[in-house]
Design a protein around this nucleic acid. Sequence first.
RNA 1: GGGCCCGUAGCUCAACGGUCAGAGCAGAGCGCUCAUAACGCUUUGGUUGCAGGUUCGAAUCCUGCCGGGCCUACCA
Length: 574
Amino acid sequence: MARILITSALPYINGIKHLGNLVGSQLPADVYARYMRARGHEVLFICATDEHGTPAELAAAATGEPVAEYCARLWTVQKEIADGFGLSFDHFGRSSSPQNHRLTQHFAGRLADAGLIAEVAEKQVYSRADGRFLPDRYITGTCPNCGYERARGDQCENCTKQLDPTDLINPRSAISGSTDLEIRETKHLYLRQSLMRNKLRDWIDSKTDWPVLTTSIARKWLDDGEGLQDRGITRDLDWGIPVRRGTEPWPGMEGKVFYVWFDAPIEYIGATAEWADAHPDAGGWERWWREDGGAADVRYVQFMGKDNVPFHTLSFPATLLGANADGAETWKLVDYIKSFNYLNYEGGKFSTSEGRGVFMDQALEILPADYWRWWLMSNVPEGSDSNFTWESFQAGVNKDLADVLGNFVSRVTKFARARFGDTLPEGGAHGPQELALIGELQRGLDSYQAMMDGMAFRRASQDLRQIWVLGNEYLQSAAPWAAFKSDPDRAAATVRFAFNLIRLYAILSRPFLPEAAARMLAALGHPEDTWPTDVAEALATLGPGHRFEVPEVLFAKIDDARRIELEARFSGAG
RNA sequence: GGGCCCGUAGCUCAACGGUCAGAGCAGAGCGCUCAUAACGCUUUGGUUGCAGGUUCGAAUCCUGCCGGGCCUACCA
């Protein structure tokens, strides 16, 4: 039995996430976590909301709530939606937790002790009307290059030229529109990642099994231009983790907070500490995060969209490695990063601002989670960006779930009920057909497991579907409806075997389809449900006399009228 | 501008440099009648973006071109 730590990239607190966000980290992480638990491994699956930063403050201001209340409310909203999708986090934390405050301050202190923090005086734009410093992208003005009037302080969207806020003509606050701006000097802490460039490169180079998408992004940042740059880790904001050097005050940094990209990944550890505090018998968070605290045998897998790769390949490892500069704290580094491309919506991007695409709360209002889980995972953007269309969604749901799996369960249970009553019949035994099928199922299972172990989710979903298809092929060739008339014992044996297939399918499908699997097992009276090691043995579980029920339709089809209605509703027009 | 990735059947995707480039969906034909008009079998369909090169052998490696996508450090 292995010990596996799984983290999903932290969803930002600012609003409800869309299907692209879901499929890019939380959902594949959940499927993997469920699979590994089913295989008998000790799994800790961690996620949390990422709550700090300017967008959270602005979103709170827009609703008139204090930012802490806003975040607490949105955390509850996100938690309920995650539960609705069956995301089986062992803990869903908050980056604003006291545990994360302590850890973030601790890391900053350790990094400072190791000489990896620099204090830098810099000039930033301050808005007197807003009473705050403005990040570059919250300053707008006229682009000096192309004359576009709504250029942002970091880049002009029109001509794509990189800008400095002081370049802008007629600069104003994007928050209030005020032009009452001034340049103020302020002091900030920088993480001296540049000093760790070689150490980080050696570490990246040792990861020969990582996806190209992951390592190429990391190498680009390490070596592009002048190489890995130091990064500011503090901000002049109110909402965030106060700057402290460990447990001590940090002279000159009063009133400042750590910047969100520094404290967000630390919340993986913080959330584990939240979990450990809630589960005193679990042995403590160190068991998962400190090699000198019991985590030496942990395999740590991270799931994220490609936009998050630089932070997880460079900044966060720099934090963990830097905190161990004296060898006194051996932090657990990630063993494998599974990164994803983007999911598009009907050929374009999901857009929060334009209301284009499907958001997680809306998805659950339309159909149960399993429908979405299946389509998203069987079309997960592993190799390149993929595209959600209602037509593809309709086809995938109807064909795979309703026709292949759902109908299989339906035809088996209804036939048995009609011919044999509400318990499995006696008589007959395995013949050559059953033996051949067992062989095919065993090969299918081996392949499915190999794909799941390797996190090749598209391939895994294809293998799973093929395993379902084998059931329909078997019924067609065994034809118990014909055998019933000439050789009832033969039909009885076929029916018993088919019921054992339903049980097997429920177990194997559970990582993807937890609700449907539960309903299948419930129809069988909740039989033993551990992951099979030997297919033949697994298919001998339900015997004569076993009671069953005919379940409600497992998956309803989406008809054309419904699809057209949904297409129109989510086009972004309204 | 720089870097990375991609381009394979009508669609979505596979294929350690090595049997006739494979699946699913869609299309066609046949079968079955237990089932959600479901299922099964058979079948149509590709000059692997274009042009060169390396090799006994290229979808795969190299060069150029065409087309698409992503990243580019203060969004997180």
